[in-house]
Design a protein around this nucleic acid. Structure first.
Lengths: 218, 218
DNA sequence: CAATACTTACCGACCGGTAAGTAATCGGCC
DNA sequence: GGCCGATTACTTACCGGTCGGTAAGTATTG
C-alpha cells in the first residue's frame, strides 16, 4: 500500500493521484497555457467533465501541483538542512538534495519554477511566500558562511540567486535517459556551486586585472 | 540617425521596429501564450488587422524577436570573445557580457530562453542550432581551461549548463529599479561563475567526506 | 490613379467550464 | 436473499468567450 514507485510522485496511487501526476507531467512538457483540460482528461482516459469530477478547475490543479512540489522541497531539502550547523556542509546539502530531486523527476519541481503566472492572486501569494522562505534560508546559510570569513566577497542576494539559477536550470537541460548519470550531474553541480561560493584564499588575482570593457565607477 | 537610445532595442525606430520592440516587452512580461495579438496591436495604438499589415503572424513575430536576440548575443558576447586567447579571460568575458545584456534590458534575451515552444518546427530548429553553437563555444572554452589544468574536475557539459543557468536566471530575478546596481550584479555573478569553474588547488577536501544521506549504489 | 496604412466586420476553432442524464455499486432493511 | 434509494463515477451535449487570422472597404499620400 505504501509502495512509492519512484520516491517523487507519491501524490497518492488512487484516481485523484493519477490525475495530478499525469497533469504535472503534461504541464511540465508543454507548459500550462498550452495544456488543455481535455488533453489532461484524455491522458487519464476520461472526458473533460469526468476530470471535473475530481478537480475544481485548471488553476486549482496547478496550485495543487505547486503546493505538492513546495512540500517536497521543504521536506527533502530544507528540513534536513536545518539540522546541519556547519554552513558549508549545509549549503552542500541544500544544493545536492535540490539537484537530486530535479534530476530524479523534474515534473512538479519544474512547474513550481515556471508557471507562477497561471495561479490566482491568492494562490500566487502563498507560493511566493514559501519560495521567499526557501530563498531566505539559502541566503542565511551564505551569511553564516560570511561570518566565518569563508564566503567570496559578493552580495549574498546575488550569490543565492546564482545558486538557485544553476540548480533550477537542471530541469531544463537534464535528460533522464541521456549520457550523464544522475549521480554525476548532482555531484558536479554541487562541486561547482560550493566552489563558486567559497573564498579559497587564492582571492582570484585575475579579477583585479579585469577584462572589464567599461569601468564601473570610482 | 544612429542614436540607439539604450543599446539593446535597436530593432529600428520605424513603425515595424516599434511593433517588434513593444511585442518583445509584452511577451517578456506576460509570456507568449498569454499575450494576444489584439493586446500587442493596442499597445502600438492600432487594431489587430492593422498589426497584420506589418506582421505575418504570431509565430513569425516571435521568431523575429528570438532571431534578433540571438544576433545580439553573437555580436556582443561571442564575436568579441573569440578574439581572447586566454581561456579564463575568455570565460570571464562571456559571462560578464551576457550578464550585462540581461541586466541592461532583459526583454528579447529572456524570450529567447523561455518561449521556444511557441515557434514553428522549422524556426525552432534554426534557433536551437544557434543556441547549440553558443553552448559549444562556452564548452570549448572550458575545455581549453581544462587543458591548462585550471578547470575543476567536473564534466564540461554540466559545467557549461551550470554557467548558463546562473546567467540566464538573472532575467528572472533582477529588477532594474531595485536595490542592486547593474554593475554590481554583473561583477558578482562573474566572480561566482569564474570561481565555480577554477581549480584553485585547494581541491575541496570537504567533498570527500560527503554529506550524502543516501548511498548511490555500490 | 495607385500604392500605403490602416479600419470595421467577421470567421472557424478551441478554450474552460457546466447542466443534465446514466450505469454501476453500496449500505441498509425486511 | 432480494429489493431500494443514495452515492459514486462518470458521459453526451452544450455554453459564452476569446483566440489567430482574413475579406473587404477607406482615408491619405505621392
Amino acid at each position: 500500500m505504501d509502495e512509492t514507485t519512484s520516491a517523487l510522485d507519491l501524490f497518492g496511487d488512487d484516481r485523484a493521484g493519477g490525475i495530478y501526476r499525469t497533469a504535472a507531467q503534461i504541464i511540465y512538457e508543454k507548459g500550462f497555457d498550452a495544456t488543455s483540460m481535455t488533453e489532461i482528461a484524455e491522458a487519464v482516459e476520461m472526458t473533460k467533465p469526468g476530470l471535473y469530477y475530481y478537480v475544481k478547475g485548471k488553476k486549482e490543479l496547478l496550485f495543487s501541483i505547486m503546493r505538492f512540489a513546495m512540500d517536497l522541497l521543504d521536506r527533502e531539502v530544507v528540513a534536513p538542512a536545518r539540522a546541519i550547523s556547519d554552513p558549508e556542509q549545509r549549503l552542500r546539502h541544500i544544493i545536492q538534495q535540490h539537484a537530486r530531486l530535479l534530476t530524479h523527476e523534474a515534473g512538479a519541481l519544474a512547474i513550481l519554477i515556471d508557471e507562477e503566472a497561471g495561479l490566482s492572486d491568492d494562490d500566487r501569494r502563498q507560493i511566493r511566500r514559501r519560495k521567499r522562505n526557501y530563498f531566505a534560508f539559502l541566503r542565511r546559510t551564505l551569511e553564516d558562511l560570511r561570518e566565518q570569513g569563508r564566503l567570496l566577497p559578493v552580495d549574498t542576494t546575488v550569490a543565492a540567486f546564482s545558486l538557485l539559477g544553476m540548480v533550477m536550470w537542471i530541469a531544463r537541460w537534464y535528460d533522464t535517459g541521456g549520457r550523464l548519470a544522475q549521480e554525476q550531474v548532482v555531484a558536479d553541480v554541487t562541486e561547482i556551486a560550493v566552489a563558486g561560493m567559497l573564498n579559497t584564499g587564492a582571492a582570484s588575482p585575475m579579477a583585479l586585472l579585469g577584462t572589464l570593457p567599461k569601468n564601473k565607477s570610482a
